[in-house]
Amino acid sequence: MREKLIEFRNVSFRYGEEEPWVLKDVSFDIYKNEWVAIIGHNGSGKSTIAKLMNGLLFPQEGEIYINGQVVNQDTIWDIRKEVGMVFQNPDNQFVGTTVQDDVAFGMENRGIPRDEMIRRIDESLTAVGMQDYRLTEPHRLSGGQKQRVAIASVLAISPQVLILDEATAMLDPKGRLEIMSTVSNVQDRNELSLITITHDLREVVQAERVIVMNEGVIWDEAKPREIFAKKDRLREIGLDVPFIATLADELNKSGLRISNEPLNHEELLEDLWTLHSKM
């Protein structure tokens, strides 16, 4: 049985007493070593959820638990040892003059011994393929390289949860693919829980589970294939579906019976090949 790592219990949040509720009585669990994608249109509450997990915000109602510990003002620094975040713009996270200085920063704040710091710098930069850039100034890196360093900086503190809050939004398609490949490998190697908050549907289909937010509440949660099978309903709340899923629909309408809900080119080609072999 999988062990719970993050628990939201009837959480509600708003940014001011006169402001509308951004989250309304939200409850869900995320398990150890699980990859969960949180999606929704702008203003649906998904980024607020990320900030609540890391103690950047606190709920007005309800409780949040990380590894069994309630998130509040007294536990905030312990929580941040468990939860690492990478944001949309990596420049906002850089504080060091070189890549290795930046990766070391979080560990220095936690009083980690120097020998251990050196080991973790090597391991985290190797994990994201940036070991050859350790003496490079961060501003000289490309957008994708900067995000890799930001991820390495989080990995160095050995969190149990890695949150990517629109972390690939500023990258080109190649950069997005490289970062998500890196993140997938990092999760496998480090046994992390991974939470991706994104508009990129190619990222969503890689997750084990998807939480769909709409107007501050959980609209649905299920495996990606089950979520994207509800194409018309997703469009009604302003969300898109993968191109492959739309193409499969059109093929079905033309008389080809695509039995599964393909999520990528490989699955669609396999379905088409199976149909062809039956003709």
Score class of each variant (00 low, 15 high):
M1T: 14
R2T: 15
E3V: 13
E3Q: 12
K4I: 14
K4H: 12
R9F: 09
N10L: 03
V11S: 04
E18H: 11
E19G: 06
P20A: 11
W21M: 14
L23E: 05
K24N: 12
S27F: 02
E34V: 05
V36S: 11
I38C: 07
I38D: 11
I38Y: 09
I39D: 09
H41C: 13
H41I: 13
S44Q: 03
S44K: 06
S47Q: 04
T48W: 08
A50R: 05
K51A: 11
L52V: 01
N54P: 03
N54I: 13
G62Y: 10
I64F: 02
V71I: 09
N72S: 08
K81R: 14
V86R: 06
F87P: 07
F87N: 02
D91Q: 10
D91M: 11
N92L: 12
V99D: 05
A104P: 09
F105I: 00
F105Y: 14
E108V: 06
R110N: 15
G111S: 06
R114M: 11
D115T: 11
M117T: 13
M117Y: 06
R119I: 13
I121C: 02
E123P: 01
L125S: 03
L125H: 05
T126M: 10
A127W: 03
A127G: 08
V128A: 11
V128Q: 05
M130S: 07
M130L: 07
L135A: 10
R140K: 13
G143S: 06
G144E: 07
V149C: 08
I151P: 07
S153A: 14
L155P: 01
S158W: 00
P159S: 08
V161A: 03
I163Q: 05
I163F: 00
L164I: 06
M170Q: 10
M170S: 12
P173A: 04
K174Q: 15
R176Y: 10
E178Q: 14
E178H: 08
E178S: 08
M180K: 08
V183R: 12
N185K: 12
S193D: 01
D200T: 00
E208W: 05
R209A: 06
R209H: 10
I211Q: 10
V212L: 09
P224Y: 12
R225I: 08
R225N: 09
E226K: 12
F228E: 08
A229I: 07
P242M: 07
A245R: 06
K253D: 15
K253Y: 07
K253S: 13
L256Y: 10
I258F: 03
S259Y: 02
L263I: 04
E266D: 10
E267T: 00
E270R: 09
E270G: 00
W273V: 15
W273C: 15
H276N: 11
